[in-house]
Design a protein around this nucleic acid. Structure first.
Length: 318
DNA sequence: CGACTTTGACCAGCGC
DNA sequence: GCGCTGGTCAAAGTCG
């Protein structure tokens, strides 16, 4: 069984509270929605370019959408809400989250790209040398600034989840306090410096935590694969086209039967696997769930599939 | 042969 | 300053 669950934007370096929680098992099966930092910055929906997700018909009507000011990431937090967890750092608010293939890719695209564009053409060796020096100087003068990042928890047997983009692995590191290594991937498309880190949850090895960082500067290669799209229903195809995100049918989403793919596809997985372009998973997720508000309204009360992913004590609290 | 993975080395940041 | 850790580089290996 596969499902993609908790989402969080993390802007820190190294291990994040999010991953700590993942490893602590707290977030497993929990949807937490973070609205942006301190309530003063853009909400997640705005960052995703979704204007009215909280509108009158929003599926969030009945779902607690905490602000970061109200909630803490502490595992000891009482009454954890059963929504998707996301968070932006302040710098991430300035740069929208990676929205590969999104129609709303803003001019505040990735830093590295801008750097490249500004770089004069020089001798190759010299350039390499300069690049290294620049990198060094950059790191010396300022704290490493990270691209907006976006983490997914995915219950999956495979580490490399098909998300519509092609990735090249450029590193692997053992993670402290975890038997599972963390893999580093970079988008293979030239001039696109989107990266992703993939690791397994310490507590639940079946959960893959994928953290995307940066913004794709090109359309997803998967979009041209008509054979993929033809497996989708109209709305699912809509979600793919508009949000291009890595997203599998989660247990929750599978409640929306009419949007379930007709048959399994992609990746050779045994379960229906909805492959999207990249990042923006929450957007697609939310967008999709707008189509099935009825089911969504039952979400928190439904002890059907939902109980697979939401701890029973949370359901009791609803 | 090109694309991709593996893996050891290197570097920066951080805490002590 | 030192050691630890995360992130990246790049050469070598693998695969189709």
């Amino acid at each position: 069984m596969e499902m993609k669950q908790a989402v969080k934007i993390e802007g820190g370096v190294g291990s994040s509270p999010f991953l700590d929680e993942v490893q602590g098992g707290y977030l497993q099966g929990v949807f937490d929605m973070w609205e942006g930092e301190k309530g003063g910055s853009l909400g997640f929906m705005e960052l995703l370019g979704i204007q009215d997700i909280n509108g009158p018909s929003s599926l969030f009507d009945g779902i607690h959408v905490p602000s970061i000011a109200q909630e803490s990431l502490s595992p000891a937090r009482p009454n954890p809400p059963a929504v998707t967890k996301m968070e932006y750092s302040s710098s991430e608010v300035l740069n929208p989250p990676a929205t590969p293939n999104s129609s709303s890719i803003s001019s505040a695209s990735n830093e590295a790209l801008n750097d490249e564009q500004a770089k004069p053409v020089v001798d190759e060796e010299e350039e390499q040398y300069k690049t290294k020096k620049q990198l060094k100087a950059k790191k010396t003068n300022q704290k490493r600034q990270r691209e907006p990042s976006f983490a997914f928890m995915t219950k999956s047997e495979v580490d490399q989840l098909e998300d519509g983009y092609r990735w090249r692995k450029y590193g692997q590191k053992a993670v402290k306090n975890s038997p599972f290594p963390r893999s580093y991937y970079r988008c293979t498309t030239a001039s696109c410096n989107v990266k992703k880190r993939v690791e397994r949850s310490f507590n639940d090895p079946t959960i893959v935590v994928t953290t995307y960082e940066g913004q794709h500067t090109h359309p997803s290669p998967v979009m041209s694969r008509s054979n993929l799209v033809t497996h989708l229903t109209d709305s699912a195809a809509f979600a793919v086209t508009n949000f291009a995100m890595p997203m599998q049918r989660s247990t929750v989403l599978s409640n929306c039967n009419q949007y379930r793919p007709q048959q399994p596809f992609v990746n050779g997985l045994s379960t229906p696997f909805m492959s999207f372009g990249s990042i923006n998973a929450a957007a697609g997720f939310l967008q999709e769930r707008r189509f099935c508000t009825q089911e969504a309204s039952l979400l928190l009360k439904d002890h059907g599939l939902l109980q697979d992913i939401v701890p029973s004590h949370m359901l009791k609290e609803e």
